[in-house]
């Protein structure tokens, strides 16, 4: 299994764990009368699950299993591949803490952190599409 794939899957598993942990906290909030601020975790819960876990696993496994691009670049441009990993995960981590903090402390630096998170994730998404496109082909 390529190194980049291992990194994607390991990070994906972390988001999977974290998102389900948040899911438990969200369900526990009304039962144990926890702070209403817990609900700021709801969008993070969904995005850690769908982007951090599912999408990241797909990206990692696609890098590993999709048809080779060429003899010179069997897995496409590796630098772009690592940029996808870095942008996606920095973007997600920024969102993970900035979104709840922004709801609690509006008019702060956290708003711009969310903007940065958005840009990083969009860049990661399109870079992945660009890099994997040539490997989506008939043998």
């Amino acid at each position: 299994m390529p190194t980049l794939t291992r990194y994607h899957i390991k990070m994906g598993l972390m988001y999977f764990l974290l998102s389900l942990f948040m899911g438990v906290i969200l369900v526990a909030q009304p039962i144990f009368n926890l702070s209403i601020d817990v609900w700021t975790l709801r969008p993070v819960f969904f995005h850690f699950l769908v982007v951090g876990w599912i999408t990241q696993i797909i990206i990692g496994v696609a890098h590993w299993m999709f048809p080779k691009r060429s003899k010179e670049q069997p897995r496409g441009n590796l630098v772009l591949g690592w940029m996808v990993f870095i942008c996606l995960n920095i973007g997600l981590v920024f969102r993970g803490f900035a979104e709840p903090l922004f709801f609690i402390y509006p008019e702060s630096i956290w708003g711009w952190t969310l903007v940065l998170s958005a840009v990083l994730q969009v860049v990661a998404g399109w870079l992945f599409v660009f890099n994997i496109w040539g490997r989506v082909k008939e043998r």
Binding site: A98, W112, T113, V115, S117, A118, V119, Q121, V122
Partner: peptide
Amino acid sequence: IGGMMLWNKGI
């Protein structure tokens, strides 16, 4: 689209 909405949420 998600990025545009997240941007809008922050700024």
